[in-house]
Amino acid sequence: MRLPMFEYAEAKSAAEACGMLADAGPDAALIAGGTDLLVRMKRGLERPARVVSIRRLRGGLPAVARDGARLALHPLATMAELAADPLLEHACGNVAAGARAVGSPLVRNLATLGGNLASARPCADTAPPLLSWDARVRLQSASGEHSVPLDDFFTGPGASALRRDELLTAVEIELPAGSSGSAFLKLGQRAALEIAIASAAVRLTLDRPGGTILAARVALGSVAPVPLRARAAEDLLLGRVPNEDLIREAGEAAAREARPIDDLRASAAYRREMVAVLVRRALTAALERAGGGR
């Protein structure tokens, strides 16, 4: 498969990248790992006149940095790096699990976190886990920088709050106090190279091991036009001491909140049903990790 012709420029700094985007106008595209953009270009779904590479913007920065309760994930970190990052695994295990679930080792060595989010696919495997940690993304343009909750970032399939002239420069998580546990589950037909039929990421924060739920997050992939927070399920869990029934009810509530469609990978009805299963299982695993016994 061949790529159409385009102009290529490599930015040396975020500011330069923003400048290049501003200059290029609507026909520009950013390339980091390239695993999404190049496939879309080969299929003729996208035909940017100018491609701006940001591969050099990483500098020597680590994939994940922790400063107190604040965790910063570099948008140019590859899925492979995040999948194997001990800091991330320890603090937000389901984000590492989401990164591990992406495509295949070959793709994970190229694909970046920023790309996974900026492409704004409902099936992006890192999106639900990051939503479960109330992650925020930093967006920078020639005119300045602002921070957006990831929950407000996704606006539709392939659409996000990221403007054409903006760069996603940071993904940040403020780790909550208390005892947290998380999980990510992805349902597919194969064990690799899969686009999720449905996925669920959850995070539970208890006031103490075995205690009450201080915060609950339930986020879903591939069952709505955007990676989706299941707020009714979260509300159901909040302030309760979790048990099996509660967890099942939360799964069912999440299923009701899903807005799936029929497509070649599964029917909407099956997806909705699977949300209940995945959320229940993920909550059970997360609870155990949070130290919530029965």
Binding site: V39, A80, V107
Partner: peptide, 25 residues
């Protein structure tokens, strides 16, 4: 399209689908 791995090469020691890497990169 990066789905089969027949084009795998090591880039700085890591296996990647070379069909999804620009030569310029």
């Amino acid at each position: 399209e990066g789905d089969c791995g027949a084009c795998t090469v090591l880039l700085d020691g890591l296996p990647v689908s070379s069909c999804l890497v620009l030569a310029l990169q």
